[in-house]
């Protein structure tokens, strides 16, 4: 009898969509497009923090740029009245991520922090995740990148240097999240406090357009920010349930 009950409860557990009843943390980022100036500091910060290679002019021309966060530029209108809109685009850490289901070797999966994790060691390089990603934020190592001296001296020891044939993408600076969690544990706290952890891009943003935090915590800044009336998801119609929330730019005089 108890065996059957165990079996039934296990079955129900494994049949639950998304598996996690609720995440320990649900890391979320909001980006206020009203404040974003499109300066590109976040791109540089990310490049430095996460050992992202500089591909060089030639490879860039071939469309093999590598940056986990990019500033998308959209022009509106014709020349005299042209307007420029920016939108920083990074991995949206979707809760229903198309990229996760397609990986045949489980190299990308959802962890209990609600992050879309990428295991470089496990990746075989089918590149299907990049095809399945509607946001185009997965970047592939087309060859082994080199850091000419003295650039190799500034590689971040907390982050792997990826080899050729491996897919990589924004991790929400998982190494910083880990450190914050470890520190919280050392202090005997159960949870990381709001504002204790910031990815490199958020830390760098001069106009403080980006807010990062745990949306499970209703006192957190990010929770307030994502409940702003201007909040929206990019490509909401694809139903990916992203963890990055954008705040719409407000036009004053149209």
């Amino acid at each position: 009898m108890s065996f059957i009950d165990t079996l039934r409860s296990r079955w129900q557990e494994y049949r639950r969509p998304g598996y996690y009843e609720n995440f320990d943390y649900a890391w979320t980022m909001t980006i206020d497009l009203d404040s974003c100036t499109g300066c590109g500091a976040c791109v540089t910060a990310c490049q430095a923090e996460n050992n992202i290679p500089l591909v060089g002019e030639e490879e860039l021309a071939r469309g093999r740029e590598m940056h986990w966060i990019r500033i998308e530029r959209y022009w509106e209108g014709e020349f005299p009245n042209a307007k420029l809109n920016f939108i920083p685009m990074l991995c949206q850490h979707c809760d229903a991520a198309p990229c996760e289901t397609v990986c045949p070797v489980s190299a990308t999966y959802h962890n209990q922090d609600g992050l879309n994790a990428q295991v470089y060691n496990r990746c075989v390089g089918t590149r299907s995740c990049a095809v399945y990603c509607p946001y185009e934020v997965r970047y592939f190592n087309y060859y082994n990148h080199e850091w000419p001296s003295p650039l190799d001296q500034q590689l971040n020891p907390d982050v792997t240097v990826r080899e050729k044939g491996v897919m990589e993408k924004c991790t929400f600076c998982i190494q910083r999240i880990r450190q914050a969690k470890d520190a919280a544990k050392d202090d005997g706290r159960r949870r990381v406090l709001d504002g204790e952890v910031q990815p490199a891009c958020v830390q760098t943003c001069a106009s403080q357009a980006m807010v990062f935090g745990n949306r499970n915590d209703s006192q957190s800044e990010v929770f307030k920010s994502m409940n702003d009336p201007r909040a929206y998801h990019v490509l909401e119609e694809v139903n990916t349930a992203p963890s990055v929330v954008y705040l719409k730019k407000v036009e004053v005089n149209g």
Partner: peptide, 8 residues
């Protein structure tokens, strides 16, 4: 491994 919001 939970993936893509699917059940295990």
């Amino acid at each position: 491994h939970a993936t893509g919001g699917r059940p295990i």
